[in-house]
Design a protein around this nucleic acid. Sequence first.
DNA 1: ATGTCTGTTTCCTA
DNA 2: GTAGGAAACAGACA
Length: 267
Amino acid sequence: MPELPDVEGFRRVAAEAADGTRAGPVRVRDPQVIRGLRPATFARWVRGRYVKAPRRHGKWLLLPTAGTTHDEGGFPVVLLHFGMTGMLVWSPADEPRHAHDRVTFEFAHGQLRYRDMRKLKGIHLARKQSELDAVLGDLGPDAYRVSVTELRDRLAGTRRQLKSAMMDQSRIAGLGNLCVDEILWRARIHPARRSTDVDDVGWQTLHQRMRVMLRQAARAGRVPDHRSWLTGHRDEPDGVCPRCSTALARGQVAGRTTVWCPACQPD
DNA sequence: ATGTCTGTTTCCTA
DNA sequence: GTAGGAAACAGACA
C-alpha cells in the first residue's frame, strides 16, 4: 500500500493533528518495530518534544521535533517507514486499540498510531545528522520534486528494465509497484523497455505524466482506483484498458506483478 | 493442513 | 552492473 501518495497522506495526518503540539507518553506495544535503539530509550527521547512541520522524502515520513513551542524543528527526528501494510492513524485517546497498533504517540487531543500488520519496516530515531544520513543517505531525490533533467540523468544510465529502475529508491525515491504501472501506462511506455532505450521525448513525457499522476494521487492520499485510471482495473481478471478497451496484459516485470496495455504500451 | 499470493526492502548468488 | 531468488513478517484465500 504505502507509496509516495499514501505517505503524503500520512504526512497530512501528522501535520493536521500534531504540528506544533507536544508529545506525551510514547507507548511501544511491539518492541520489534523500534529500530536501531532500545524502545525505552526511543520513548524517552520523544516524550515532551514538540512536533514541527512533518516532512516526507520518498516513502519516509519525518517528524522533526523541538524543545519549545517557538523553536524550529530539528533533532531528534522520528523516521517512519510503512513497509507494505503500514499506516499512520489519528485517533481519540479512548478509541480501542487496534490489533496492529504497534506504537502510539500521545498528544493533548488524541494520539498518533503507527499501525502495521506485517512488520517489514519500522520506526527509527535520528538524534543528529549522521544518524539521519545513515537511514536516508542512499535515497535518490523525491519523485515528486525531481526535475526532468535529473530524472533522465538518474534513470538513463542503466540498462535495466525501466520499471525496475523507477522502483529503485536510490535512483528516485517514492515510487512503488502501483505508481510505476500507472505512470508508464500514462506515458505509453512498456514496463520492460530498457532505460537506455528511452529518448528525450520519452523522458519529457514520463516526467510530465509522473507529476500529474503523483499530484492527484497525493491529494487523495492513495493511488485512486478510479475507472479512468489503470489502477482502477488492475484487480479485475478480465480488465480492459480504460483508454482503448484492449484487454490488459498481466505478468511479472522486475519480479513484481505488472499490468499494462499491450496496445498503448507496445513492446 | 498446506501452499500461494501480496502495494517493500535487503541480502545473497550467479 | 544486472537479474533472480529468498527472507523479514502476517495475513487472506483456495
